[in-house]
Design a protein around this nucleic acid. Sequence first.
DNA 1: GCGAGAATTTTGTTGCAACAAAATTGCGAA
DNA 2: TTCGCAATTTTGTTGCAACAAAATTCTCGC
Lengths: 232, 232
Amino acid sequence: MADNSIESLDLERAPERLGDAAYREMKERIIRGVYRPGHKLTVRAIAQDLEVSTTPARDAINRLTSEGALVYAGPKTVVVPVLDAAALREITLTRLALEGLASEQAAQHGAPADVEELKSLQKLINSALDDKRYTDALWHNKEFHFTIYRLSGLPQLVSMIESLWLRIGPSLHNLYPEFAEEKYGVRNHEIAMEALAERDAASLRAAMENDIRDGYRRLKRANLERDAGRSS
Amino acid sequence: MADNSIESLDLERAPERLGDAAYREMKERIIRGVYRPGHKLTVRAIAQDLEVSTTPARDAINRLTSEGALVYAGPKTVVVPVLDAAALREITLTRLALEGLASEQAAQHGAPADVEELKSLQKLINSALDDKRYTDALWHNKEFHFTIYRLSGLPQLVSMIESLWLRIGPSLHNLYPEFAEEKYGVRNHEIAMEALAERDAASLRAAMENDIRDGYRRLKRANLERDAGRSS
DNA sequence: GCGAGAATTTTGTTGCAACAAAATTGCGAA
DNA sequence: TTCGCAATTTTGTTGCAACAAAATTCTCGC
């Protein structure tokens, strides 16, 4: 047996598989709202879209399914999930726990340069909202959050949070444009930036939690309206 | 297009794929300590072990890898992870957040029958420890925790917690038998059962968090000793 | 029109062979 | 012995065909 004294020194040694690329592309499409809730996905269609064979396409779909980003709507039918009230609540509770933790930890590592980056991201969000480019606003909003979470220095935690965003992402797209009217989240983001500058963990956590709760309320309201509209 | 007014009514519709069975079997083997940290896994070997072809075996390994239960030690080398101090800390922080949340929610749904089930699980743990059947003790301990977590009524949360246990599981096996000397966790479990009977969410959470922290301290100590022993 | 059921098409899974690339082994020089 | 390097073996990925099963379409009777 070889001497493997390095052991835990080998980080980020994942090779670049075709299936990984397919997975990443699918992920981005889901977050960007290309596939809306209820959209049915088939292996062969994805393979054609991404110009790969069925194997990597199937890999990507399976991975997304096991993460909860896609769900079975039948034995041979995989769709982008339509979140019901219970699922929405569960994801929100989990987000509060995980993103709250990440925020707290991030407060301990925030440098001035990070605050600057957040500021410029916030500008991007604002101007996207002004121009009614809602998909862009959502994207920059995601970057804002994850810029903070990455500061936690806890990469596995960050990727768990990512999988939660993958689950709510599609529903968010169904919310716009009403969602944006009130300049969603701006106030919370401002408080978050201040808190990070002051390395105030509790305040940063509170600001991020408020942001999550705000979004939750809007999503819930939108869902109720949709369900009411459907039964008529 | 068909009328799909059922939408979110379709739960648990996953078909039984061969790859799923392979995944579950691998998961159990990892938790039970069949594969120890550092163990190298190959597609063809797993396929032979589980008596399936390479495709389902590969599916299982990929899924486990994307969950973090297995890691790359090289471009073509997948191993059961050897946790370093940083990874151990990160998992513990995440466990505290997620298992704390699950405990809190569980407190609201605990029925007398559930407390009884926990009591009988605790007896199994105790007798396993007395007989020095450490693998069994670990297994029943896992059941104890998840019996509580499942009471939360948040299935997605529970499966996220499962994936965390998959990550620390192998390391736990390297801990025994010293690990068990002090009747690990018994006191915390007793408090947890009382708290559940009284539907005291804060106490239940505290008890479970203490249990997690206890385990963390032991793991950290064992890791330090191992590392010290290796450099000599 | 409309629903039930058959006929047809589409779909996911599985096993496998080929290939490139990585891991391992073997060997020889210092 | 130990180190470097080449030969060899092992390995993961990929594409694909076959198959069973599910989804869809079509048809016919009412």
